[in-house]
């Protein structure tokens, strides 16, 4: 069964709380780098909630935009990797084989969304913090590039559960950690190959747009614009 995983981010619901960031860190063995490294722009988080100041309108306001790997169909990162460490898998995901990565950082350089993060050093989980590490995915070592995988381990888990019960994956059965936890339900995940899935219906909304659509990267992450209320 072929899948086309996609995410929809409804900016009309997003409150900017950062629960997605914490959930991602917990799920994907993402290290904390500390104040000094963070000051050098070396945060390892795979999803960020970018905050913009809306100064075009009367009265300043903040606008939130969660940004993660767009899982581009025509990904600029893939074509520049000299060792095929980042590649397109059968579900159309932009996957990483960490063990192949030699750390050229060409991929990050070529990503218009700046969602790739690099392990500038070996990160240490002081004992017993390492007890929390998920056994479903590895801890990446120094010199390796990493980024959001759409929680590929969760997709895998759902596929195995479905295969064991000899049924297709149900709509809503897979949710990456960020989507699962999002308090206002701004994030939605699903299979756009299935025309009846919730995300397929959601993406028929004319509010939809993709980041930097003009680059032709064909992201699998769609955004839904904030709505403007009537009146005041």
């Amino acid at each position: 069964m072929k899948h086309k995983w996609a995410m929809a981010i409804d900016l009309d619901r997003c409150t900017g709380c950062g629960a997605c960031v914490a959930a991602c860190v917990a799920e994907n063995n993402i290290p904390t780098v500390g104040e000094a490294e963070a000051g050098m722009g070396r945060l390892m988080q795979w999803i960020r909630v970018a905050r913009y100041w809306d100064e075009e309108h009367a009265g300043a306001n903040a606008v939130y935009l969660p940004v993660l790997c767009m899982q581009c169909e025509r990904a600029p990162c893939e074509t520049v990797c000299p060792v095929y460490a980042t590649y397109h898998n059968d579900d159309g995901l932009n996957a990483m084989a960490y063990n192949r990565c030699v750390g050229t950082r060409y991929c990050a350089n070529n990503c218009p969304y700046s969602v790739r993060v690099f392990n500038w050093r070996d990160h240490v989980w002081e004992k017993p913090l390492d007890e929390q590490l998920s056994p479903d995915l590895s801890v990446r070592s120094r010199g390796v590039m990493e980024k959001c995988t759409f929680c590929i381990q969760r997709i895998r888990r759902a596929k195995e559960a479905a295969a064991a019960e000899k049924r297709p994956i149900r709509d809503g059965e897979v949710a990456p950690a960020c989507v699962q936890t999002c308090p206002p339900g701004a994030l939605l995940f699903g299979d756009i190959e299935d025309p009846d899935s919730e995300i397929s219906r959601k993406l028929s909304d004319p509010r939809r747009f993709r980041l930097m659509e003009h680059l032709g990267t064909e992201p699998r992450v769609w955004y839904l614009k904030r709505r403007k209320g009537a009146g005041l």
Partner: peptide
């Protein structure tokens, strides 16, 4: 649903 502080309870445990 859960917030960032709830997610981080694991770090208190370990």
């Amino acid at each position: 649903r859960l917030c960032a502080r709830g997610q981080a309870a694991l770090q208190a445990l370990y």
